[in-house]
Amino acid sequence: MTFIRGDGLKGLVFGVRGVCSAVLVAMLAGCSLWGGGSSKPVPADLGANVAVLGVRQAWTARIGNVSGLPLEIHSAGSVVTVASSDGVVAAIDARTGGDLWRVALSEPLSAGVGSDGKSAAVVARSNALIVLDGGRERWRQSLGAQVFTPPLVAGGRVFVLSADRSLSAFDALTGRKLWSLQRPGEPLVLRQSGVLLAAGDTLVAGFSGRLVGLNPDNGSVRWETALASARGTNDVERLVELVGRTSRVEQSICARAFQAAVGCVNAARGSVNWTLPASGAEGVHGDGEALFGAESNGTVTAWRRGDGSRLWSTDRLKHRKLTAPLLLGRSVVVGDETGLVHLLSRTDGSPLNRISTDGSGIVAAPAVAADTLVVVTRNGGVYGFRPD
């Protein structure tokens, strides 16, 4: 993972998963866990897997290598849409693991995939926004900057958040640009998925450390509020970015600011409910009662959604590079860099089960569709798991 300059040009290269909680520490002294020539810390042995919650592999599919692609698994009903780094996009039936459609765009992607269950949208490294319908290309439009956040397809429109901190809306049928908004920000951005979602009739996007609510019809700003603020004296120290995934329950939206904070806002009023310091690089997930996230050192934490008070924290997966979590029933599901999928109790973080894939690492936050847990590995394995 890298930083890039906000004008879309590649800039400072810097690791994000597993870095120390403060960017300044990593810059000047080397990370106490990773840098300074010291060896990478070894995760604790997990011991024998005691399957408290029975899970079986229902199916497996292939999508192609996903390395380098900020992938989000999109689910709508029983349809799971995924993409590969080299431009393969597929809609998979989560009930069977079979393809509903598949297309090879024959060009590498920088962001994918957004979908409303019918249309799917990806962005190529050539800065082309490509919209597909049933596996056929409907249209494409050139963009002015790189994109690392999957497009949002909603309400007959396609919304795109670019690395130059612009947000654009396109007609989903024709590709006609409807509006564009440019926002100021720090000169560096993360080469990682940001925040872009719908909350009722409001479009919500992350710009630097701020959540901004907009009118999706014309891009006018309805509200904005900060979860984290820039700090420090140089571009790297001052980097502040909201990262996906997010957790939305009615008007409550909770998100993570990269290596800075976790917090929740009220999307109706545009006000902060609470925010707390946190040192993670991946997003959060939860329900109306609790919010869950993994810190950069592998600690998994649960917060009370209403006020941010800590419910529990576990170091069992410490020093394992974890994905953003998925709350699924009684389980908090996270993947790690060795291809393991961990199911933890939502009540106290105790282990419920551990399942293996191909060993190449889980690269996207787990998703659920048609009562099936879906994960994607770096080598392009797509796995569907169901309870016994």
Rank of each mutant, 00 (worst) to 15 (best):
V113H: 07
G114P: 11
S115T: 14
S115V: 08
G117K: 05
G117H: 10
K118N: 12
K118A: 14
A120F: 04
A121G: 11
A121Y: 06
A121D: 08
A121I: 10
V122E: 03
V122L: 04
V123D: 06
V123S: 05
V123T: 12
A124D: 05
R125S: 14
R125A: 14
R125P: 03
S126V: 04
N127S: 14
N127I: 01
A128T: 12
A128N: 13
L129K: 10
L129D: 09
L129Q: 11
I130D: 08
I130W: 09
I130C: 10
V131A: 07
V131P: 07
D133S: 15
G134H: 11
G134Y: 13
G134W: 13
G134R: 09
G134T: 10
G134D: 12
G135P: 09
G135S: 08
R136G: 13
R136A: 15
R136F: 15
R136Q: 15
E137Y: 02
E137D: 03
R138G: 12
W139Y: 15
W139I: 10
R140D: 10
R140I: 07
Q141C: 09
Q141V: 15
S142N: 14
L143A: 10
L143I: 12
G144K: 03
G144L: 05
G144Q: 08
A145E: 07
A145H: 03
Q146I: 00
Q146M: 09
Q146E: 13
V147E: 11
V147R: 01
F148Q: 01
F148L: 05
T149H: 05
T149S: 11
T149G: 04
P150G: 08
P150V: 06
P150K: 02
P150T: 07
P151G: 04
P151A: 06
L152M: 08
L152G: 04
A154L: 08
G155N: 06
G155K: 01
G156E: 05
G156T: 03
R157M: 09
V158Y: 02
V158H: 04
V158S: 02
V158P: 04
V160C: 04
V160L: 02
V160H: 04
L161G: 00
L161D: 02
L161H: 02
L161I: 00
S162W: 03
A163R: 01
A163Y: 01
A163N: 01
A163T: 12
D164A: 00
D164R: 00
R165I: 01
R165Y: 11
S166K: 05
S166T: 15
S166E: 13
L167R: 00
L167F: 03
A169L: 02
A169C: 04
A169R: 00
F170R: 06
D171K: 07
D171C: 03
D171I: 01
A172H: 05
A172M: 06
L173W: 09
T174F: 11
T174I: 09
G175R: 07
G175E: 02
R176F: 12
R176E: 13
K177W: 07
L178M: 14
W179H: 06
W179M: 10
W179F: 15
W179K: 06
W179N: 05
W179Q: 08
